[in-house]
Each structure stands twice: as C-alpha cells, then as structure tokens.
Simulated scan of single mutants.
Amino acid sequence: MDQIDARVIGELKANSRIGYADLGDAVGLSASAAKRRVDRLVERGIITGFTITLRSERTATTTEAVVELFCRGTVPPQALARALSQVPEVVEASTVTGEADALVTLRARSVSDLETALEKVRDLPSVDHTRSAVILSRVIESR
C-alpha cells in the first residue's frame, strides 16, 4: 500500500459514495485509475466493504447500552459471534482483555426494549453474567 492508496482510503472513509471521477480528482488520478486502485484494495482484502452510518437520534433506535459480558468457561470468538447474532439489538461486539470476556453494544427503541434485549443476551448458553451501562450522550463519535 502506498501513499495514494492511503489517500484513496481516506477519501472513501469520508464518503463511501464518492464517484470515481471525484475520487480521482481528490487524489490526483483519472477516474479509471481511481477505480483500479479501489478494485485492487478490495481484491487484496484491505477494503472489506462499503457502508453507511446512521445517527441514532434520527432513527427510532435511540437507547443504547454498553454491556460487559462474562462467559462460562472459554468461548471462542466465532461461537460468541454466532450466539450474539441471534439478538438483533446487538450492533457491535468485541472480545477484550481484563475481567470481562467481551464488550457488547446494544441499541433499542426504548429502555423497555433495551431491557428485553439484555435479557436475551443474558439467556445465551455461554453467558454467565453481564454488567451494563446505558449511554447518556456521545461526546466523540468517529465515522
């Protein structure tokens, strides 16, 4: 990966819907050369997808919590991912160091819905217990 690839990635991070002509202009390439760069980054597995981000306050899912997950025994990350994918309110999950085995972010329409989702997580066979904190406001949010 060279400096132009890094600039291409930076432009795509800022706007994944940018057209190849505009992308090329931003990084000093033609539209076709910009497309070839993006295609090559995808082929090499550096870019794994294109997505959108939503402002939760503008959608119906405004209630969020971060949940520390404590598992029974050793649970492989893939098994944890399969189990947590059964709960639609889980929007992010990561294995971590420290006392907890994983950190999970839940997003729901209301406190009641959040509580129901948390109960679903607690009922998963590999989960021993949880510790959660409701998010009041975001101070910094990355793209």
Rank of each mutant, 00 (worst) to 15 (best):
S132Q: 14
K120C: 04
S85Y: 01
L136R: 11
R55S: 13
L124C: 11
R138A: 09
H129C: 02
Q86N: 04
R58H: 14
T59A: 11
S112Y: 07
V127T: 12
A60N: 09
V75C: 10
R138E: 14
V66T: 12
S110C: 11
A81M: 01
E115H: 14
S126H: 09
V91P: 02
V127H: 11
P88M: 00
T105Y: 03
P125C: 04
G98Y: 07
A93E: 01
V139W: 05
R109D: 03
L103T: 05
V111S: 12
D101E: 04
V91F: 00
L80V: 02
V104N: 08
A102G: 12
S132P: 03
F70R: 10
L124A: 07
T95D: 03
H129G: 03
P76W: 00
V104P: 12
T61R: 15
A117G: 09
L80M: 15
R109E: 13
V75N: 06
S56W: 13
A60H: 10
R58D: 12
G73W: 05
L84T: 04
T105A: 12
L118F: 10
D128F: 08
S132M: 13
T61G: 04
S126M: 15
L80D: 02
V127G: 11
V104L: 10
V91C: 06
D123S: 15
R72S: 06
T130V: 15
T97R: 09
E64D: 10
S56C: 08
A102Q: 08
L118W: 09
E119C: 03
E68L: 15
S112C: 02
V134N: 00
R82M: 03
D101M: 05
L118A: 04
L84P: 05
F70V: 10
T116M: 09
T130C: 08
V90C: 06
D128I: 00
R55K: 15
V87D: 05
T97K: 02
A133S: 15
T95Y: 06
V75G: 08
S132V: 06
P77C: 02
L124H: 12
A133F: 13
R58G: 11
L114E: 02
V127L: 11
E68W: 10
A79R: 14
E115G: 15
Q86I: 00
V96L: 07
T97S: 15
S94Q: 12
D128T: 00
R107T: 00
R109P: 02
L114G: 08
L106D: 00
T97E: 02
E141D: 12
E92F: 11
P76N: 02
P125W: 08
T63Q: 12
L103P: 00
V104D: 02
A83G: 08
R131E: 10
G73C: 06
S56V: 11
T62H: 09
A100K: 09
E92C: 01
L118I: 00
T62K: 15
H129V: 04
A108D: 01
V139Q: 09
R122W: 01
V87F: 09
T95A: 05
A133P: 00
C71E: 03
V121D: 01
R122P: 05
A108K: 04
L136T: 01
R109A: 13
C71M: 11
R122C: 04
A60W: 07
A83W: 03
V87C: 07
R82V: 03
S137E: 13
V90E: 00
R82Q: 07
P88N: 00
A83C: 03
